[in-house]
Design a protein around this nucleic acid. Structure first.
Lengths: 196, 196
DNA sequence: GCAGTTCCATACGGCACCGTATGGTCCTAC
DNA sequence: GTAGGACCATACGGTGCCGTATGGAACTGC
């Protein structure tokens, strides 16, 4: 739990980190103890020392993901207390081009037949939606409007993540084009409902 | 290939149909011959008669998906030649609440580490994006604008599909609410870029 | 009604992963 | 410097799936 460098002597975190990489590449099925052990240059013995079984490893990996990809992001955005519109902009910019994050996202949403994954995904989505709804309501939308916008905005993020993985070349490539795309999405999203 | 009812004597289509159901539920990993055989009340012998190996079954299943969930939809929409805006509306309505379809969609986008899946997913996404871009350009958008709108619209669809699977209860439940949601999305999407 | 084809059942070997058991090595404390 | 615990290696049996082989059943034409 406290060891750090060296060549041997792994920690739980070493395992969950490796598991998240594997998850991003090969889906939840790739979070398998024996392959991970090889990858880590160790053996199953280590895994079954740190975790009761595969399920415990998966569980720990999911918790790590929840922490890093939801709470940490929200905290960062909320850290400097700028105007809601700016926070929304920073959020979109932060989140709409994180390829590695998108990988994990997809792998998880895909494997949501696994009850462990389904539960984690549900918590994360609800958390994000409620945060987005709060931002939109601070922008002057009614409750109902804000909720719908939150769903739309989050859908865009999720869809974008999928496209990033599946057909990356249809998305803007240069930083400038990417910025234009984000601005366009943002302008579209923040148009008051009722304008046709 | 021509047999139809009876209790026994399966066809290739029986297998790919069962495979698509399994795919929707358990991801690409669930397209496994022995479990499917059990499910179909037969044995592997049947599978290996109709298909060379598992890969051939997966390939056939993906082709079926491409046909049913892309070409068929586009043909239906294009069948009656109404105004672009109406076609877009019908498309959104058709596509934004097909739970079963969304299941398969997610399962596939998730398993796109598999090269077979990746190729199919790429083809389907490109086809859809180009069709959407065409619709938007018919609505008066420039090429670049239409492309961006296509990406946004398709992202919304993909994101919605994920939410349908992961947190279904945050989406509108009643037909009326669903209609309102679709109209809202549509109005948002068809706002000219430049309006803030 | 018999031969050939079409389709399926069964049995087998192989591989990848899970989880257990058990012994070995290193680290720390005293 | 030795005892106990923390950490890992190795070997084993079990399970689920793949793919092959081979022997039927069921239909088909003649």
């Amino acid at each position: 739990m406290t060891a750090k460098a060296g060549v041997k002597r792994l920690t739980k975190d070493d395992w969950t980190a490796a598991a998240m990489s594997a998850l991003a590449e090969g889906g939840i099925a790739a979070v398998a103890i024996e392959p991970l052990a090889t990858r880590l240059g160790t053996t199953k013995g280590s895994a079954y020392w740190h975790f009761d079984n595969r399920e415990a490893l998966v569980r720990a990996t999911l918790e790590r993901w929840e922490r890093l990809h939801t709470e940490a992001v929200i905290e960062t955005i909320e850290a400097d207390r700028s105007a809601p519109a700016d926070r929304l902009r920073r959020l979109f910019n932060t989140v709409l081009d994180n390829k590695k994050e998108a990988q994990v996202e997809m792998a998880l949403l895909a494997s949501s037949d696994d009850p462990l994954v389904a539960a984690a995904v549900r918590r994360v989505n609800e958390r994000r939606l409620s945060y987005l709804a709060m931002l939109f309501s601070q922008l002057g939308y009614t409750e109902a409007q804000a909720k719908r916008r939150a769903v739309l905005a989050h859908s865009i993020y999720l869809g974008q993540a999928q496209l990033t993985r599946a057909v990356p070349d249809v998305l803007p490539q240069t930083p400038a084009a990417r910025r234009a795309h984000v601005e366009d999405a943002l302008r579209t999203m923040t148009v008051p409902p009722g304008a046709a």
